[in-house]
């Protein structure tokens, strides 16, 4: 299990990296490498060139702005997880990050890299989707923001052009008065999710659900927004029955059927995690108000 030959480009600027992307037929970006290098070792990826962006200055910053958190392309999972400032502003991120693999992997793996890798069972893409976040990408055509809703195409595939590089990802602020939760089921600690649910619930002054954002990983070919569940929750009193009824609407979204039960087991897991995540989010919202 040794990588095949490739050219190595140690980019010193984003522009150099973009140039390199256009100079070879098949390139990959090396940031944390925690998904890429296994693929190289297995030779399932045999790129012409590996473009290492680890020496590009300025990409390793976390900026917090009014509750929103922007992470540069070289921000490691662990770095964000341990950032007191990011936690104070946006505690959902740490809760989700805690589910990502194991510490040695989080020490190296980057959030933007995980988003670019777009594994359908990965946590941070689902968080980005839940929060209506976006990535900033640079390519030969310049810089643009790509909303999460337009980013993920299917498992391990994004809509980005082949010469584009994600330079940052922005996780918008949690709504005022909201509660959040990230609930996940894995077969073993740190594994990719059988299903994971990201939930942000904002109760109104009457205690009824004013707004709800939910997304899931692991259940489909990409991280998905659970719009039907959200719509069913809004306006309800968030009782157990109301949440269960809404959670049942996830069933149609579950297309990943490799659970040994033709998807039925995963549907039940998704429903259960939704009810648990919503309950936890509601509890947190209530604590926030208290």
């Amino acid at each position: 299990m040794k990588p095949a030959r490739f050219e190595y480009v140690a980019a010193k600027t984003v522009a150099e990296a973009i140039d390199a992307r256009s100079s070879f037929d098949d390139t990959v970006i090396l940031a944390g490498g925690q998904s890429l290098i296994p693929m190289l070792n297995y030779r399932v990826a045999q790129p012409d060139a590996v473009i290492d962006i680890n020496r590009v200055p300025g990409l390793d910053t976390i900026s917090v702005d009014n509750g929103a958190v922007r992470v540069g392309a070289l921000v490691r999972h662990r770095q964000l997880e341990l950032s007191a400032e990011a936690f104070a502003a946006h505690p959902l991120l740490r809760e989700a990050l805690d589910n990502v693999a194991h510490i040695p992997i989080r020490n190296r793996g980057t959030i933007c890299g995980s988003i670019a890798h777009a594994d359908a069972a990965a946590e941070m893409p689902a968080v980005l989707v839940c929060l209506d976040g976006f990535v900033t990408a640079q390519g030969s055509g310049g810089e643009r923001n790509v909303p999460a809703s337009d980013l993920f195409l299917f498992h391990m595939t994004t809509t980005l052009d082949s010469d584009e590089i994600i330079t940052s990802a922005t996780f918008p602020a949690l709504p005022k008065g909201s509660g959040y939760a990230f609930e996940e089921l894995t077969r073993r600690h740190g594994d990719y999710a059988v299903a994971g649910i990201c939930a942000v619930i904002t109760p109104g002054p009457d205690g009824n659900c004013a707004s709800a954002s939910l997304s899931a990983c692991g259940i489909a070919e990409k991280p998905v927004r659970l719009s039907a569940v959200e719509a069913a929750l809004v306006g309800t009193n968030l009782s157990d029955d109301a949440v269960s009824a809404a959670a049942a609407l996830v069933d149609d979204m579950v297309t990943n059927e490799d659970d040994g039960a033709g998807g039925r087991y995963r549907r039940q897991v998704a429903r259960t995690l939704i009810t648990r995540a919503v309950a936890k989010a509601c509890q947190r919202a209530a604590q926030g108000r208290a």
Partner: peptide, 16 residues
């Protein structure tokens, strides 16, 4: 440990 933090040496290139 790479710069003080744990890392997988099999998921790191020597050039890095």
């Amino acid at each position: 440990r790479l710069n003080g933090e744990t890392a997988r040496s099999c998921l790191t290139l020597a050039v890095q």
